[in-house]
Amino acid sequence: MALNLSSTMRPLSCWKSIFRSTRCVRQLTTATPPSASTIPPRIGISALAERSLSAGPKKIKTYPPPPSARVHFKEPISDVTAAQLTTLDPTGARTRMFARDNSDAAKVGDILLVRQRNGDPFAGVCLNIRRRGVDTGILLRNQLTRVGVEMWFKIYSPNVEGIEVVQRREKRARRARLYYMRQPKHDVGSVQNIVLQYQRRSAVLRSGGEVRGRDANSGKRKGKKR
């Protein structure tokens, strides 16, 4: 009575009862142990489920990993550094100038002169040499117009045309970082006079090599002063 009533109200409800019956059959078939020889009779919709069961889990295709670059490049960072240094410092002079094993190398406490590409050189006492491969930098301190000035320069920078040792420290500094020279008690003050003397001397040497004569020298000096 109730089924009749529901079927008249909702005509699709008869499908529901049919599906329910098939679901019961499927449950029965899964309960039996699956084997290739005893294939239960296929009934309607449950056929698809049975086929997948008989085939087992689907095989996923796997690929071998691509060849690793690690075999060819054992230490990539040091390789890059070496490549950079060959382009930025082809002669190796800069590297030697600040190498630890070089006894003639520039050390902290020396007065260094950095010639820049934009024309104005900067000189000062070297307080610190930060050795970091291609990022190696030096910290110079000087006093200009009675104001202390400190500058870091990257020694391999293309903007740095040359680094010269103006004056060496008489005794080796016993510290790696001479930050105490910022204190008024230890500050050496302006090294501009020493640098000017050095520049004059080197100009004389250079002009002496090229042309011999007092006039040529004096002309050179005048130009240098200006």
Partner: peptide
């Protein structure tokens, strides 16, 4: 200290 685009750094005492 003020870092310039070329990597150099400038610092004054005051």
């Amino acid at each position: 200290q003020h870092q310039r685009p070329d990597g150099s750094v400038v610092k004054f005492d005051d």
